[in-house]
Design a protein around this nucleic acid. Structure first.
Lengths: 129, 129
DNA sequence: ATACACTCTGGAGTTGACTCCAAGTCAAGA
DNA sequence: TCTTGACTTGGAGTCAACTCCAGAGTGTAT
């Protein structure tokens, strides 16, 4: 699969794919004899994984570390598990923060709706913005 | 309240507080006659709000727009409500993505745990990394 | 009144994660 | 073979959101 096809499949730019490979977010992709990238199913698995993790805010640095450990082989199983667990904990913290903010936003929006509905366009003085 | 006290209260740097004020994430803070910031309870409400929204990934740009609308007065009630609703939708999308990734991570971690426990350090060939 | 910690401003620098570009190479169709 | 569009690399540029700095002013304790 060419880089263009991979881009279209995942809605990502070729520059980003090359960047991911260059810095090690995904392992090196095989090439044709002319030097052009030829993505295998396994490569696509790595690409998919990178996109999924990045979309959740897992850092590029952490993904690089994971690939590095993966390349070192079976002796890094525990280290890889621990890295994933760390990523999991980080995104859980993120989830908690976002949920809290979501609740606050829901409250604020309901207060605005009420104010707009009743025509009373003011807050209690003890209430923040 | 001085900037230092606000920093300590919220675990944020003075530079960030001044930055937020300079770009308009929070409205201008009152000063002593010598020109030193003196945060009121209302200012703290804005600071708290900014920190909460930023921690959930709401953009600085959106917070600036909210403060701008707020300063324009009651005629912007609907616009402010809509902006909050937009922020709410954005963080919901973020929540959905993170939850999806969390599930994948949980699965991967359980697979690693199983592999480590049984001593069988290999995946099925159809399974990605 | 002097020291010392704190604060001010404007502007430059940093970080993470891309994103773009130039100059050259590759490959499929006419 | 020639053209045209896609691909290559290395390196520079961009963007959001801070973060740091120099040089100057403030304020309080001795």
């Amino acid at each position: 699969m060419t880089i263009k096809e991979v881009c279209e499949k995942y809605g990502i730019t070729a520059d980003t794919l090359r960047y991911y490979e260059r810095v090690g977010v995904i392992p090196a992709v095989g090439r044709t004899k002319g030097g052009i990238r030829n993505y295998t199913e396994e490569d696509l698995g790595w690409v998919e994984n990178a996109i999924c993790m990045r979309s959740a805010g897992v850092s590029v640095e952490m993904l690089i570390e994971y690939v590095r450990l993966f390349r070192e082989g079976d002796s890094t199983f525990q280290a890889r598990r621990d890295l994933l667990a760390q990523a999991r904990a980080e995104i859980q913290a993120e989830l908690d923060k976002i949920n809290e903010t979501a609740k606050l936003l829901d409250y604020k929006i309901s207060r605005y709706d009420e104010a707009i509905r009743t025509g009373v366009l003011s807050w209690d003085k003890d209430e923040n913005v």
